[in-house]
């Protein structure tokens, strides 16, 4: 774990980063099966690299593939909750 990772989080060092323990993490990495989760506030740890997640955005589960650069960020940062408005003309008026 990089010390800067803890520093950036703004969380006290003795607590360490907040994360949720995924019991099926190793299995998911081997089988390449996405982990379905609602834990958007879970910090991405170095051992998550390569794992595929399906992160809840309040409505759907969006796919997130964890890469090396994402370490230290939260899972929720990659599952966008807002959709840009697009106008759809109604058919039956």
């Amino acid at each position: 774990m990089q010390p800067s990772l803890i520093l950036r989080s703004g969380r006290s060092a003795w607590k360490g980063p907040f994360f949720v323990a995924f019991p099926n993490l190793k299995q998911a990495l081997e089988d390449n099966v996405p982990i379905r989760t609602n834990a958007r506030s879970c910090t991405i740890l170095p051992n998550f690299v390569g794992v595929r997640f399906m992160v809840h955005n309040g409505k759907d589960y969006l796919p997130v593939t964890v890469t090396q650069d994402m370490i230290g960020h939260k899972l929720g940062e990659f599952s966008h909750t807002k959709k840009r408005f697009t106008y759809k003309a109604t058919k039956n008026r």
Binding site: D69, H73, G76, E77
Partner: peptide
Amino acid sequence: AHQRMIGSYVGK
């Protein structure tokens, strides 16, 4: 650029 590259909300 880092935030944009990893596709996070901040970058977006």
